[in-house]
């Protein structure tokens, strides 16, 4: 992919993000932060490449540490979001 196609994806995604986030109900803003936090750990892709690549040892170890840090976020972020979302309940209809 050349720079311009990547830039196009980025710009389009910014617009998608803009409209999607405005449609999020304010009651769910805390779960929104938790889940965006989890998905921004997709940076683990870069960490995995660094860990698996042949080359200087330092670069590999930096990658492995990054894999561990991003994993804390991925598992923690999705789990805590799920825990929060499970708490949101509608009123029970009485009689």
């Amino acid at each position: 992919m050349d720079f311009i196609s990547i830039l196009s994806i980025f710009v389009m995604a910014c617009f998608v993000g803009y409209y999607v986030v405005w449609s999020v109900t304010p009651a769910l803003h805390t779960p929104l932060m938790a889940v965006t936090n989890a998905i921004s750990s997709v940076i683990i892709v870069g960490a995995l490449i660094a860990s698996a690549a042949a080359g200087p040892d330092l670069s590999k170890y930096l990658g492995l540490v990054a894999v561990a840090l991003a994993s804390v976020n991925i598992f923690g972020g999705f789990a805590v979001t799920a825990r929060m979302l499970a708490m949101y309940k509608k009123k029970e209809k009485k009689g």
Partner: peptide
């Protein structure tokens, strides 16, 4: 990294925040 998953996510999270 020319990685679309990372770019899309970054843009989403960036605009969200």
């Amino acid at each position: 990294l020319h990685n679309s998953a990372m770019i899309i996510t970054g843009a989403l999270v960036g605009s969200s925040g």
